[in-house]
Design a protein around this nucleic acid. Structure first.
Lengths: 195, 195
DNA sequence: ACATATCTTGACTGTTCGTTCCGGAATGGT
DNA sequence: ACCATTCCGGAACGAACAGTCAAGATATGT
């Protein structure tokens, strides 16, 4: 017994996510969000609470997607070998580094608000833990397949790669140089496999 | 033939730097800077122009210090070997990751403002280039001293390490876990040296 | 068709933003 | 001692900020 929304909250959230992703939390105003979503102020407040609530919703959605990427590392679709999957995902990160690329919203948010926003910290922790776990599993499989030497410590190597991903994406916000990042990825893979 | 300043612009800049470092550009207000520096609004504008001018001055100062750290990598003081120097600097980065640590202002600024502020981008580029150059030189020396196997590509390895530093410092803003970061540093050094 | 709960709209709240204006105080060169 | 110049302090600027209110519009369950 109520009126139906004229806008799709899902699409609105998606567009709000885009703005937060591009400009960060502080630099994004409600007016920006009204413009980007095409949704009226009050409807935003009715649907998402306040600015931080909308930000949380956006980051939740982004994080779900990011976790999906970590899952893709485990999923043996395409019949690729463990090392092949690692290479593919890793190179995908470097290839994203082109002008106009917004980097990773989780990382940008962690840097901008990690020191004052627990919600952001939780997401960052979860993202690191999930990617680390997926990488440990993949590296172990790669060792079983004799693609990575047994002397490599899977956990340490996984953490190195997680850190490299953060570094690449942080750097990509200001210096989106695909060739440079490629050389990092290839160099790192070379260090892990060469013996 | 003029009145002398009652405040020390050098100290004021130092304190302003501290605020920008902690909170970032957008989240820092002029009122914050007045409070932190103890300097009146008008005097700030007289001395540094506007908010962005003060930010530039602060980042200039921070960058000069950061370049000094890259220089420390080259400087063979303490009689340490090339690899020893690399280890020392690299571990220092990880050891900074404790609660309360503000990370690296250059990196935070690059992430926050890299997409809308050329001044920040220039600084980021310069910092990357300078650290990369210093690392290439150090790795070559380490190879000459047979501390690092000759099969390692100095430039690629240097870029990997630069990226790791960015990753560690970006992550440290939200997840300052010294043990975790130590394992990254040790893992990376292990990959570079082990053969 | 009616009642009612919700949505939309746009004006509006008080606060804070970055910045500027101005009058009085203080200083160094003549 | 005076003058030109700079600095300090505080009030004030319009704009933008996050968030709210109230009234008209609309769709659904009855």
């Amino acid at each position: 017994m109520a009126r139906t929304k004229e806008f799709d909250p899902d699409i609105a959230l998606e567009r709000a996510l885009g703005v937060f992703w591009e400009k960060g939390y502080e630099a994004t105003s409600i007016a920006d969000l009204v413009t980007a979503t095409g949704v009226q102020r009050q409807s935003i407040y009715d649907t998402f609470g306040d600015k931080h609530g909308l930000f949380r919703a956006a980051l939740d959605r982004y994080a779900a997607r990011y976790a999906g990427a970590a899952q893709a590392l485990r999923d043996p679709s395409g019949g690729a070998s463990p090392l092949g999957r690692l290479q593919r995902v890793f190179r995908m990160v470097a290839d994203e580094a082109e002008p106009g690329n917004r980097g990773c919203m989780l990382i940008s948010s962690a840097v901008e608000r990690g020191r004052c926003d627990d919600m952001v910290v939780s997401h960052a922790r979860a993202a690191v833990a999930s990617l680390e776990k997926a990488l440990v599993a993949t590296i172990r499989e790669a060792q079983d397949a004799r693609e990575v030497p047994p002397g490599v410590n899977p956990r340490a190597a996984a953490r190195v790669i997680v850190t490299l991903v953060w570094g690449l994406r942080a750097m990509g916000r200001a210096i989106p140089d695909r060739a440079w990042q490629r050389s990092v990825v290839d160099g790192a893979l070379g260090l892990v496999t060469a013996h």
